[in-house]
């Protein structure tokens, strides 16, 4: 099964939720997904298209478009195609369903995206900050409009 058949299979299975598909090369395909059914899409990818390995999951902030993208990069143990799945959320209240029931390793990725971007994952088993201290929660330091950098206060720069 090559990249084109995979993207066709995904589009026919979820005609309303998958859009802006693109086959970049023989091993890279890109698709955007409606955030409501991300868990179903991931389940279909894992069970029918053997995308069994979630390489990473992260957020991208677009203050100009007032959007936050959550990006899933999903690979496979059986074929060489890597799928980049993007879900677009509103910046004021970013909420998306957790994919931990499908890919268990998404647990820490989602906790980190939560503490750095403020994306709230629904039905996550343990949504709390991963690395940052608890009192920095709510600052969302990787958003583009973050103002808390201490860059002018260092005294002994060497």
């Amino acid at each position: 099964m090559d990249a084109n058949t995979m993207i066709d299979s995904l589009s026919t299975q979820f005609p309303d939720a998958i859009y802006d598909t693109k086959v970049e090369s023989k091993i890279r395909i890109i698709a955007k997904v409606k955030p409501e059914i991300i868990t179903d899409v991931c389940k279909y990818l894992k069970e029918n298209l053997s995308f069994g390995h979630l390489c990473c999951e992260f957020g991208v902030d677009y203050p100009g478009r007032n959007e936050i993208e959550v990006v899933y990069v999903i690979g496979s143990y059986d074929h060489s195609v890597v799928l980049t799945l993007k879900a677009i959320l509103p910046r004021d209240n970013p909420e998306i369903e957790s994919v931990v029931p499908v890919f268990w390793n998404a647990n820490w990725y989602e906790r980190e995206t939560y503490e750095l971007f403020g994306v709230k994952y629904l039905n996550h088993p343990d949504l709390k900050p991963l690395v940052l201290p608890e009192d920095m929660l709510g600052e969302w330091p990787l958003r583009k409009d973050y103002k808390g950098f201490p860059n002018k206060t260092a005294k002994n720069l060497v």
Partner: peptide, 12 residues
């Protein structure tokens, strides 16, 4: 890392 959001500057 002096201008990181997480660094505490001026430990002296």
């Amino acid at each position: 890392f002096y201008e990181s959001y997480s660094t505490r500057q001026n430990v002296d």
